[in-house]
Structures are given as structure tokens and as C-alpha cells.
């Protein structure tokens, strides 16, 4: 079937079997290999992308269902100010080791920061439960998220471009 997607802002026409899932479409046809595939049944979160404005499992969206959708992958967030803060904090807090879970983790982390600005550690851990990491033990990831949440809550940090420096002490 023919399908139309808007991927990272660009209108894209593709040809695929209806059974092909979005993660494979992104990786194999568009060479956007930042989206990783772990379990292919919705559990691990490695394949999480933004679909029509909200995080979704790209392994569970087959080509037919995503015809007409707007997709944002990790590659499409290089200029995103929240993502920039998260990347810096992930690096500072050792929130990744092999990096396999990281793109999905960052997609989820960005959603937490934007949707739940008041989240505390318990809530962050609860919200992260759908992204599995085999390396880090999660502590660094949780700390990185809490640092970004705190930096955005600080008075005068209304400017999302404000540097993260100083909030990771």
C-alpha cells in the first residue's frame, strides 16, 4: 500500500506492506535508526516515538494504521530545547551505558517534563516504568529527570533555552 507520513516535519510518501510496523518503516525505509526495537510487543519502550503529538509504541502501529500520521523521532528533536536539557543531564548523571534504551527513554522523559512539571521522584519512577534499561539500574536516569524538572521550576528559568548549568550540583 501507499502511505503518507509527516516525519520530523517533512511530508513523506512510502510504499509498504500493511503489516510493516512503524519502527521498521522508520529504520529500514527512512534510515532513521535512532528508534530502537527491543521486544516488539509494547513492553520495553525502546521504540517509543511521538505519534500525532504524544508518545506511542512504534512497534505496535502497523503501516495501515499510521497512514496520514505525524511522527517525530529522536532525530527530529535535535533542536528541541527540552531535549537539549535532557541530553546534558543524561550525560552528567551517567543515565546511559550501552545506549540501547536511550532514545525511547528520552522520548518518555521529554513527555514527563512537559506533561508533569511537578513530578516528584515517585512519580518519575512510576512514569518511567514503561521503559526498560538493562544497564544503569535507573538511578542516573531518575536523577537526570529530576534535575531537568527542578531547573525548569526554578524562578527565572521560564526561558526554556536557559542553560542547565548549575542545576546538577
Amino acid at each position: 500500500m501507499k502511505l503518507h507520513l509527516t516525519v520530523n516535519g517533512a511530508a513523506t510518501a512510502l510504499e509498504a506492506e500493511p503489516r510493516t510496523h512503524l519502527a521498521d518503516l522508520l529504520r529500514d525505509q527512512l534510515l532513521l535508526t535512532g528508534t530502537h526495537i527491543g521486544c516488539e510487543h509494547g513492553v520495553c519502550g525502546a521504540c517509543t516515538v511521538e505519534l500525532d503529538g504524544a508518545p506511542a509504541r512504534s512497534c505496535l502501529m502497523h503501516a495501515g494504521s499510521c497512514d496520514g500520521a505525524t511522527v517525530r523521532t529522536i532525530e527530529g528533536l535535535v533542536d528541541d530545547p527540552v531535549m537539549a536539557l535532557l541530553c546534558e543531564a543524561f550525560s552528567a548523571e551517567h543515565a546511559l551505558q550501552c545506549g540501547y534504551c536511550t532514545p525511547g527513554m528520552l522520548m518518555t522523559a521529554r513527555d514527563i517534563v512537559l506533561r508533569l512539571p511537578e513530578a516528584d521522584e515517585d512519580r518519575v519512577r512510576e512514569e518511567l516504568a514503561g521503559n526498560l534499561c538493562r544497564c544503569t539500574g535507573y538511578r542516573g536516569i531518575v536523577r537526570a529527570l529530576l534535575a531537568v524538572l527542578a531547573s525548569r521550576r526554578r524562578p527565572g528559568s521560564g526561558d526554556p533555552d536557559s542553560p542547565l548549568s548549575g542545576c546538577l550540583a
Binding site: G45, A54, P55, A56, R57, T108, D111, G130
Partner: peptide, 9 residues
């Protein structure tokens, strides 16, 4: 129910 990414769909 499940996780936010699953709840969105």
C-alpha cells in the same frame, strides 16, 4: 493502566 505511551493509543 499500562504506560502512558500505551494509554495514548
Amino acid at each position: 493502566i499500562a504506560y502512558r505511551a500505551v494509554r495514548n493509543r
